[in-house]
């Protein structure tokens, strides 16, 4: 089944709503707590990144018996150096976000840690698409 979320940009106080909604949906489906938490963390980090760097965007989640696929799309500035961005502690977050405790350079590493597969396609000046796959326990389907 599919769920769509709009992620409004530039308001950090609203960030986390999509992740919270997705979490509720997974609970209704009876997905195990460990998977829910992994999904929540990965989704939340992606959502925050989208708000801080890209003025928001949209998130689509597809939940199936094998796993959860989340696709987050924005039309932000893009990531110039993806390898650098994946390093722990590397951050380009603005001061305002840092004051709120964001921008510790753990966003992408945390997403990678919690996802079974993480793909980032980014073009500078065009935008970024992040795909997160979370495999359900007991599922034999490998990440694509």
């Amino acid at each position: 089944m599919k769920l769509h979320f709009d992620v409004p940009g530039d308001d950090l106080s609203l960030a986390g709503k999509a992740s919270s909604e997705l979490k509720k949906a997974l609970g209704r489906l009876g997905i195990d707590p460990v998977t829910i938490k992994r999904t929540a963390v990965a989704m939340y980090e992606a959502e925050i990144n989208m708000v801080i760097h890209a003025h928001g965007g949209s998130a689509d989640a597809e939940i199936g018996p094998a796993g959860i696929d989340i696709r987050l799309q924005d039309s932000g500035p893009g990531i110039p150096d993806l390898d650098m961005a994946m390093q722990e502690g590397y951050s380009t977050a603005p001061e305002a976000a840092r004051e709120l405790g964001f921008g510790a350079g753990m966003g992408l590493p945390n997403m990678k840690r919690n996802a079974d597969d993480l793909r980032i396609e980014s073009t500078v000046g065009v935008g970024t698409t992040v795909t997160i796959r979370i495999t359900l326990p007991g599922s034999t389907t490998k990440a694509p």
């Binding site: 986390g16 992740s19 929540a40 939340y44 945390n110």
Partner: peptide, 8 residues
């Protein structure tokens, strides 16, 4: 608790 579950 929401924030905690999100890894904050």
């Amino acid at each position: 608790l929401e924030a905690l579950e999100n890894g904050k």
